[in-house]
Amino acid sequence: MSYTRPLDFKNGRIEMSYGSGGRAMAQLITELFAKVFDNSYLAQGNDGALLPCVNGRLVMSTDSHVVSPLFFAGGDIGCLSVHGTINDVAMMGAQPLYLSAAFILEEGFPLADLHRIVVSMAQAAREAGVPIVTGDTKVVEQGKGDGVFITTTGVGVVRDGITLSGNLAQPGDKVLLSGAIGDHGMAVLSQREGLSFDAPIVSDTAALHGLVATMLDSGVCLRVLRDPTRGGLATTLNEIAKQSGVGMLLQEAAIPVHQTVEAACEFLGLDPLYVANEGKLVAICAAEDAARLLKVMRAHPQAVDAAIIGEVLEDAHGFVQMVTRMGGRRIVDWLAGEQLPRIC
């Protein structure tokens, strides 16, 4: 069976027929997705992937990705959608095994851009060792989507003896952060707003399951792992405090922030504590293990700037407090509405 003409990845655009289930869709799958993702599960060519037996409890997580601009310094929506879901699975203490990917494409979207995104996803999946085993594509009319939306779902397995959960933080525990905050959000925002800095801000998007495995292997008593994505570090810590029914006290001086990120935040009137990260994690562990965990993390290339940023307190209000760099105290609250730049 041969098609009349191969897809034009240079000048072609998405048409409604690519999502209609007909020949055009089959062509898109064969010439793009199956070819680029290239693994034996996809090659089965069925509606679902038949996967081998696994040993242990399963973790499953799903995440939809919408980002504007689609391409930014340090990544794009493709690798982001792979990293994001791998990280959600990893934060449960699981070894990520498989991914699925669903695309919602807008009519008129350039095939060249789609190709670039799919290649980026494939590369991210390959580097992470987590294949994309099944997927789906739909096309919406022009004006009804924002170029491309990608939903990925991940499955992973947790070995015996490991239980991580947001409700396990205990008073006295230490709070660790794997590196500088705000890089991803500010990379995207500064690109969107056309801000330029001497040194461009690069997204930190990365798959963290390797780091997590190292941390788990060290044998420390880990209670909570979270990746502070949307809503930033502040939101993640408030979520944990609420789930665990505890408070926290952070030390602002201990929280790493790159200077360019701080400057960009300053300019837009944003607080880096609320800016998204895509390659950082927060770990909560027993106080006596904190120093050892910090050492293990810093020895890993993805967490050389790791720091102990605070501790868990007993507090029925669930306040996350912070000693500021100036020595005063304040609350690091939930975000009210969305974070909007101030005007003056």
């Binding site: 912070m322 500021t324 100036m326 020595g327 005063g328 304040r330 003056c344």
Partner: peptide
């Protein structure tokens, strides 16, 4: 100014 209010609360200056 709100800008001062923000700095005072943001840095917890009342504690100093």
């Amino acid at each position: 100014c709100g800008g001062h209010t923000h700095a005072i609360s943001r840095y917890g200056l009342a504690d100093l």
